[in-house]
Nucleic acid binder design. Structure first.
Length: 392
RNA sequence: GGGAGAUUACCCGAGUGGCCAAAGGGGGCAGACUGUAAAUCUGCUGGCGAUGCCUUCGGAGGUUCGAAUCCUCCAUCUCCCA
């Protein structure tokens, strides 16, 4: 089903769009001093208020967090992974159990990553060519082929709301020819993904590559824009380059991405990275950081991260944050430290919940700030406190 | 009362003449983690004015160029025989 709708731009102009009902992106407000955007994305499983952060649930679970508790963190949309779920339990098993939403108990929107990042991160056990990538399964060593068409087939079988196209990342820094080649292949693969689509309830996001080369980034964004995807991502960043370089690339890339489509910065990042991204016009983020670092005893707060295994928290009676409503913050830092020192599983669980709650509170405050036209002030105050408050 | 064996750093434990400030594990301390092969990984863990010096292997003394390692005595613990 398709619908016509109108977006009222903050500059007073109107633009009309025709998209399927589940693919609507609405710009609610655009910040005047920065490129921050307050938007809304309609998916087959409900709306997503933007900007937002998506916790990573690679295998159909955000590790350690029961889905009801995950909902209480304020998360709107979560991630799943093509490569991992196709290996185990297999996408047909997921479908037989009612699709990814029913399978994992999350009835909100789900975005699935294409496996493009695994093509990169599992480089030692895969080979890649124009046709696609061939993996040696990290589980049993058997041969797995992942092509653009196969990536979409898996994601459609899983039944996610947003499917990512298969892309080609390269390590950074890298030479320009290698980056350009991977970028061009990413565009060709994006077209193959689009052409392979059969599921109306699923929208595809294309991924902008181009390493740390601003012109290649823009070239890629423009080429993908012609293919008219419902959303666009910036990929291949936060792979070891300094944060400033990443910001520069975001800065250079977002203007080349369609303003009337959601923009997703893949795999990013720390709280300050999210604020930097929003400032430059990014709408969606995902990152393992709140969950993985939470499992590893790091708690994110407005005053910067706390390493809870540190001895200074042994007798600290304070909660991680006074104003945080999460279950971890109903206990003392000393207790949480004890859980980690004793290797109790509740420690990683509670800190994961806290960190995701923190990220979502940050996003909620960012959305409010944009709505009220004071994002720059919010950004400035937050960044200052991350730096100055790092010793609580 | 007699016999055998033990005692090593915060804990357990290897080492039986120089390559030993002493393996390994635990514990502890610190750091890392950015589209999750990660409830993981990496350092450090006697002291110091530190490419070296000082003090340490139950205690005291001895043998030796040199001792955690060999000898003597003492202390403590374990097992066996009365």
């Amino acid at each position: 089903m398709t619908v016509n709708y109108t977006v009222f731009m903050t500059n007073g102009l109107c633009r009309k769009y025709t998209l399927t009902e589940n693919h609507m992106f609405t710009l609610i407000r655009t910040d005047e001093k920065t490129r921050a955007r307050r938007g809304r994305l309609q998916t087959a499983h409900g709306p997503v208020e933007l900007p937002t952060f998506m916790p990573v649930g690679t295998l159909g679970t955000v590790k350690g967090v029961e889905i009801g508790l995950l909902r209480e963190t304020g998360s709107q949309m979560i991630l799943g992974n093509t490569y991992h779920l196709s290996l185990r339990p297999g996408e047909q098993v997921v479908r037989a159990l009612g699709g990814l939403h029913k399978f994992c108990g999350w009835n909100g929107p789900i975005l699935t990553d294409s496996g493009g990042f695994q093509v990169f991160s599992l480089a030692k056990i895969r080979k890649i060519n124009e046709h696609g990538a061939v993996f040696q399964s990290h589980i049993d060593g058997r041969r797995i082929e992942l092509t653009p068409e196969r990536a979409i087939e898996i994601q459609e079988t899983l039944g996610s709301d947003i499917a990512m196209v298969l892309d080609h990342l390269v390590a950074l820094p890298n030479d320009r020819d290698t980056i350009a080649e991977a970028m061009q292949r990413t565009v060709r693969w994006a077209k193959r993904c689009r052409d392979a689509a059969t599921l109306e309830t699923q929208m595809q996001f294309a991924i902008v590559q181009g390493g740390l080369e601003p012109d290649l980034r823009c070239e890629c964004a423009a080429a993908l824009a012609e293919l008219d995807f419902p959303g666009y991502a910036i990929g291949g960043l936060s792979v070891g380059e300094p944060p400033e370089r990443m910001y520069e690339i975001i800065e250079a890339t977002t203007p080349a991405m369609p303003a009337d489509k959601p923009r997703y910065l893949m795999g990013v990042g720390r709280p300050e990275d999210l604020l930097e991204g929003i400032k430059r016009g990014v709408d969606l983020f995902d990152c393992v950081m709140p969950s993985r670092n939470g499992r590893n005893a790091m708690a994110f707060t407005d005053n910067g991260p706390l390493r809870l295994r540190n001895a200074k928290y042994e007798r600290d009676p304070r909660p991680l944050e006074e104003i945080c409503p999460c279950p971890a913050c109903r206990r003392s830092r000393g207790y949480l430290r004890h859980l980690f020192m004793a290797r109790e599983m509740l420690g990683p669980v509670l800190l994961t919940i806290h960190n995701i709650t923190y990220y979502q509170r940050l996003m909620t405050r960012a959305r409010e700030a944009i709505e009220q036209g004071r994002y720059l002030e919010f950004y400035t105050a937050r960044m200052a406190q991350y730096v100055s408050g790092g010793h609580s």
